[in-house]
Simulated scan of single mutants.
Amino acid sequence: MTLLSPEQIAAEKANVDAFFGLAGKIFEGVEKLAALNLQVVKATLAEVQENLAKASGTTEPPQWFALQAGFAGPFAEKSLSYGRQVFEIASSTQAEVTQLALTHYERYNDRVQALVEETAKHAPTGSEAAIAAWKSAIAATTTLYETLQKTGQQAVQFAGSNLDVVAATASKTVRGNGGQASAAAAAGAKR
């Protein structure tokens, strides 16, 4: 039977803590998303009920078309708002998960570097090239990780700015089309 050393026990505990920390952050994000979805469903059902009540009171087709045109603008705005909120939840969850992963990676990297340094102290003569290669590989891995992290952050920022641009454009389009549809429906009602 093999017993674990105190360092191995501490490392295993750190791994378990990291796993549960990561799982907790992911579940928090899922919980936020579920709450948002529940809120959207409740609001949508209330709106549908209200709109059906309004629609049942219309007798002329132009009135009905004007009413339908009036529903399009708020629906598009709410859809864009929902998309923004989902993106915010996803990006904040991703940021928290990334931070936890970074913390765990830094701890692991520190342990590996300490192992390399300890090995270098006790290495036989002539193994300097192997130790240097090992250190170089660790440095390259660290650089790769940092580059991937920066690229991921840039991608999230780019997606967020694109979402803002699309939302602004769509809002302007909906407002413009809503006004045109209402004017067209009003003109049809006068005929």
Rank of each mutant, 00 (worst) to 15 (best):
A66R: 02
F87D: 00
A140P: 00
A35C: 02
A66G: 15
A69Q: 11
L148M: 14
L36V: 09
L102S: 12
P61D: 08
Q157M: 10
Q39P: 03
R84F: 10
S161M: 10
N51L: 02
G83H: 04
A114Y: 00
L148E: 10
F65D: 11
I89Q: 04
V86S: 06
L52I: 09
P61E: 05
H122T: 07
F87V: 05
Y145A: 14
K150Y: 00
L102T: 12
Y145Q: 11
S81T: 14
D164I: 09
A114K: 15
S127R: 12
E50N: 08
N51R: 12
S79V: 01
Q154I: 09
A43M: 04
Q149M: 11
G29A: 08
A132D: 08
L148Y: 00
E96M: 03
S136K: 11
T58F: 01
T169W: 03
Q113C: 02
W134E: 06
D164G: 01
A72R: 06
K42V: 04
A155R: 13
V112W: 00
Q49R: 10
T103H: 05
S136D: 09
G57A: 15
A114D: 15
E96N: 09
T98M: 13
T151A: 15
K54P: 02
K78S: 06
L148Q: 14
I89P: 01
T125N: 05
E47M: 01
P124L: 10
A90N: 11
I131F: 10
E47D: 15
V86E: 09
E146K: 13
E77G: 02
T59A: 13
L67K: 04
Q157L: 09
V112F: 00
V165I: 05
A114L: 03
N51D: 07
V97K: 07
T44L: 13
G57W: 01
V40K: 07
K54Y: 00
A155G: 08
A114Q: 14
A46V: 03
Q85T: 11
L102P: 00
L100T: 07
K135V: 01
T147V: 09
A76N: 04
G29E: 10
A133G: 06
A132T: 12
Q113Y: 03
A90M: 08
V30W: 04
Q49S: 07
A133I: 05
G160T: 10
Q49P: 01
A159M: 10
G126F: 09
Q154R: 13
D164W: 12
V41L: 14
E50T: 07
Q149C: 08
L100R: 01
L148K: 12
L102H: 10
A34R: 06
T169K: 06
K42D: 09
A133N: 12
G57C: 02
L100V: 05
E50W: 01
E60K: 12
V116Q: 03
Q94W: 09
T59S: 13
G126Q: 07
N162F: 13
T119A: 15
A132L: 11
A120N: 08
V41T: 13
Q39M: 08
L45C: 04
Q49E: 07
I131P: 02
L67Y: 01
V112Q: 07
E146T: 11
G126N: 08
Q99K: 12
